[in-house]
Nucleic acid binder design. Structure first.
Lengths: 190, 190
DNA sequence: CCATACCTGTAGCGACTGGTACAGTAAACC
DNA sequence: GGTTTACTGTACCAGTCGCTACAGGTATGG
């Protein structure tokens, strides 16, 4: 190894690719327009990542949110189910670092329906990343395994559906109200 | 008009196109493979529908479910909010006539995020088609306008999210449980 | 029968796709 | 300084895309 590979440049390109894909879509993504938007050439993208498929795969992996970090960042929310769900909803909607990733995730989930070979694993992983800690927290709050599973699913996938609605319609009030009611109902320990 | 246009053939092609798109995806749909699967030629598809965009648009319009018919078909469910929501969930999941349409709708909703010009109207229409009657039923059951809106949103978009989860993971038990809990919580008139 | 449309096959256009061959440059370690 | 490797530009390939020009076939109403 006389000259080390520029991994920093690769990471930067992956992040930019993720943002570009979130804005323009994965399905219709092609190398030349992407490269132009990133200030490079399709030749370079192929050099760095081998194939377009590999580029997208690595970008999706790099875009995976760090759930433990997100949960521990705001300690005041605690690890109560309601706090975690509110945190999830805020991540999905409040246009910060996570919103483009979420838009991307929703497209990946939809594309996985018809092209499971390319996207299914990414989509399932993303669902489980929120589902498992929420389910555990609900069990810790006293629910049975069945109920904890059902409530966690109701929260994670329900909020995904609400996020899709929100991105589509732009109706913040209605989706916020619905998310609030959903979280309240799902975390009630009655 | 010496020779009438073959509208029956067009309707048949639209239905077959919808099924093909639900299976293979809209985003990567191209005329030649589609035509081959339908036993015709890309030349004919263009002849009948003008452009690919128009073909997809008409197929999506033709795929729109007739909600009033779906609701009135099973009278025993009544028009109670819970009955309507259960009907919606069954339509989304029980692999009948509506399931390919629903898979298609989920992809359309996701694609509308990045290509609103093509798909946003279809997606928003599909959401409202279930949202409005559900909201009306919830108001009739005694909820305030705000609560009815929120609950209906929670049901429609929440169940969409659960359907996406179900299609992805294939986990019927977990998603059915979650849908049941969601419907129970959203239609409770406390 | 005839005229008028719709229908349908063949061939091809220009644009774009992902990926490559080839050449040259630049950086890092010995 | 020399050698090895990563980087990068140009040009291009075969394949696919949506769509069309052209021609011939076919059914229908008069």
């Amino acid at each position: 190894m006389v000259r080390p590979i520029d991994s920093a440049r690769r990471a930067e390109l992956l992040d930019q690719t993720m943002r570009y894909a979130a804005e323009h879509g994965i399905a219709s993504l092609s190398l030349r327009p992407l490269a132009a938007a990133l200030g490079t050439s399709s030749r370079m993208l192929v050099h760095y990542f081998g194939t377009k498929e590999e580029l997208i795969g690595q970008a999706l992996t790099a875009a995976r949110p760090d759930i433990p970090a997100l949960l521990s960042a705001h300690v005041q929310a605690g690890h109560t189910p309601a706090g975690m769900a509110q945190r999830l909803w805020r991540e999905l909607t409040t246009g910060g670092e996570q919103e483009p990733r979420t838009r991307l995730l929703l497209e990946v989930m939809a594309l996985a329906l018809t092209q499971p070979g390319l996207y299914r694993q990414h989509a399932v992983d993303a669902v489980r990343a929120w589902l498992d800690p929420l389910s555990a927290a609900l069990r810790a709050a006293g629910l049975t395994a069945r109920d904890a599973h059902a409530r966690a699913t109701m929260l994670v996938s329900g909020l995904h559906g609400l996020a899709l609605d929100r991105y589509l319609t732009g109706d913040r009030q209605r989706t916020d109200d619905a998310a609030h009611d959903l979280i309240t109902a799902a975390t009630k320990t009655t």
